[in-house]
């Protein structure tokens, strides 16, 4: 079990290996399909600022692919587990090129994303899909910082403590998905 605080650095990322269990503490940002589309439209080469530009500095940050359920009174957030990462694959290389360092989601990634992760020395974590009520207990604060009109797909700034993830693809290009089958 390893611990990690945000923002990330090249040094912190290089020390993690595929298969490591990691507890993350600090700030992370949610973004799903619709928010990715908007962020990429605001970045070069499109640079369409009609939607207000990139809502946070991507440099060394982690994006969590998640769309939570509504929060009950007195709770920071509702259930908040990872969504399928591959739907974000078309956008990810652009985000990594612009400084994004980490992603949390579930499932496999495309070859393009795998290459981009290695090239930009980034990291891809998976959280346990469906463990949404458990993961919500690790989120201490949540605030919508962009695209409130998208509802659950808005960008939330989350403060997490000991948020449990597994390194699925490390900065050296190793991943947990292509291992040889066992018995």
């Amino acid at each position: 079990m390893r611990t990690l605080t945000t923002p990330l650095t090249l040094d912190k990322v290089s020390r993690l290996n595929s298969g490591d269990i990691v507890l993350i503490t600090g700030t992370i940002y949610t973004a799903r399909d619709a928010a990715h589309k908007k962020i990429v439209e605001a970045l070069p080469p499109h640079q369409n600022f009609g939607c207000g530009g990139v809502p946070f500095d991507l440099k060394n940050q982690i994006i969590y692919y998640a769309g939570p359920t509504p929060a009950r009174k007195g709770m920071p957030i509702g259930s908040c587990g990872p969504t399928t990462s591959s739907r974000m694959d078309d956008y990810t290389p652009t985000l990594l090129k612009n400084g994004l360092k980490g992603m949390i989601g579930k499932g496999k990634r495309s070859d393009e994303v795998t290459k981009a992760i290695k090239k930009f020395k980034a990291i891809y974590f998976v959280a346990v899909g469906g463990a949404a009520a458990l993961l919500a207990t690790k989120i201490k604060k949540a605030k919508v910082i962009a695209y409130p009109q998208l509802g659950t797909e808005a960008i939330y700034k989350l403060e997490v403590k000991d948020f449990p993830v597994i390194v699925a693809m490390d900065s050296k290009g190793k991943n947990i998905f292509n291992r040889k089958k066992k018995g």
Partner: peptide, 14 residues
């Protein structure tokens, strides 16, 4: 997660 969701009345999955 299954225990927490049932105990707190939270959706099992988002």
């Amino acid at each position: 997660n299954i225990e927490i969701a049932a105990k707190k009345g939270m959706p099992l999955c988002q």
